[in-house]
Every structure is written in structure tokens, then in C-alpha cells.
Amino acid sequence: MNRLSVNLGKLQLTNPIITASGTCGFGYELSPYLTTLPGGIVLKGLTLEERQGNPTPRIAETPAGILNSIGLQNPGLAKFKQSYRTKIADIDTCIIANISGNTVEEYARLTEELSKLAEIDAIEVNISCPNVKKGGMAFGTDPIAAHQVVSEVVKRSSLPVIAKLSPNVTDIRVIARAVEEAGADVISMINTMLGMKIDIRSGCPVLGNIMGGLSGPAIRPIAIRMVYQVAQVVDIPIIGMGGVRTLEDVLEMLMAGATAVSVGTATMIDPALPSRLVQELADYCREKEIVNLKSIVGMALPSEMNV
């Protein structure tokens, strides 16, 4: 019996560690560094058409974090099917596609096409990218738009649907409830927080696209707070992420109410980290005689919630 296995609705993972979209390429770039596979790998955000993304510099370091403004550079659906899917075919874990679009119809078409691919096990709907002009975060900051996109994706998908939420909102619970009502199987959160950095020598913004998304340890307390809030108002499982880097951070995220935990920025710094976290979590469970992670998920929630 694998004590690390978790269920995310219809999706079963061998362990609760997942690598976050945009920080593990299309999986094949990361897999050579992985000795133990994480329970899931979320691919770089895909759009219907190929995108070249934003001008450089696209990354800047900030206290305990990074700002990125990649702008969803990706090969587009056609090239993905042609040249990328074969590269992920023999990575033996749950492969999750992450999708973005300018319109609801684009999300729906991507869903239909990706549902047909044997390599893909679930679809994560990115309604929270802060780095593109149209779509992206615009859908994720309005409950009505979020509901509309997610319900259309759910309708067209034969795979489990994960809705990825933006932290750039006043009350994330409203959006969480909207996507649950729209039929999402899982919620993943959080995407990056919109931020900015200025080079005081030149007086200019550092990023080519001026603003970017903040990730890394700096945002962890925000992510913990939001997972804790959302866990109290939805019944579907949550994938928690934002600044996770150590076993302690994983445990904190589980206790806040997440069923699985994604690592993003920390994988960029150390590509072997996801494997190490799986092993450390296994050791921890053995040591503490935890036979099912359910016993720590949501431990910090108010007692009437803690089932």
C-alpha cells in the first residue's frame, strides 16, 4: 500500500508532489534530473496558436522571489502534437496540460483536442496568467467569466479539469466557488502575484514587459492564507502552490487544506528538488506512522471543517 498516493477527484496520483506549469518545460527537459517521479507534471501553458512571448529581460530577482514575464511562449497546439508529445510519452507519471486562450472558444477547442491525446491525463485551465494582454487573468478575476470558461471546458473535456486561480483578487473564495459550481474537479492555486522592479541606476523597469508575476518563498504566506480560505468554502480538492521549497513547506500547505502540492520556482533553482521532496515526505510519513495523508490535510482548518 502506497501511503503517499492521493486522489484528486477522478485523478489518482502516486504521490502529492507536482511540478508547476512554466517551471518544468514540457517535462522532458526536467525528467533527466528526476530520480523519483513526482505524482504529476504540469506542462508549460499551451495556446491554440504558437506564441513567441514577451521581450527580454523576462526574469528578475527580488527579495526571496522572482518576477517573470514570459508571456506564455509556447509552440501552439499543432506543433505540440507534432513534435512534443512523443518526448513526454515515456515519462511514467500523470501528465497535466495547462491551457490558455483569448476567448472561451479557444479554451474549448484546446480542451477537445488535448482530451484526445493518450499522453495527457488532465487539463489545467489557466485563468490566471498576469503576463498576457487578453484572456488569462481577465477570466480569473471575474467570477462570471471564470464560471463561463470553466463550464465550457468541463463540457468539452473527457479528462479531469483543474481550474488554476489567480491571487490578484480581493476575495479568492468567490472565484473558487464559481469554478466549483462550473464543474471543475480540482482547484489549483496560486498563480503569480503581479509585481514590478525598477533599476535605480537607469531609472527604468527591469522587465521587458514592465510588470511580471512574483513567485517563490516571498508569496508563500499569501498562498497558505488563500488555500486555507478556499478549503473552507469548496468541497473539491485543492493543489496548493506558491513558494514551496522544503518538506516543511509541503506539510504547511497540506495542513492549510491542500490535497497535493506543486513546486515551481524551487524546481528552477534545483531540478532534483521534486524527487527529493517525494522521498522526504515518504520518510516523514514512515517516521510519524502516517498511513494516509488525509490525516494531515486540512489539519489547521477550524475544527468543524476538519473531517
Partner: peptide, 16 residues
């Protein structure tokens, strides 16, 4: 040379 995040192809920060 370009500003890099991961150096190993994961993040698409370093493009030319």
C-alpha cells in the same frame, strides 16, 4: 548572454 532563471530549459526566461 541573456538573463537566466533555470539554465536548463525549464522556464523560457532566456530567449533570443
Amino acid at each position: 548572454e541573456e538573463r537566466m532563471g533555470c539554465g536548463v530549459g525549464l522556464c523560457f526566461s532566456c530567449v533570443c
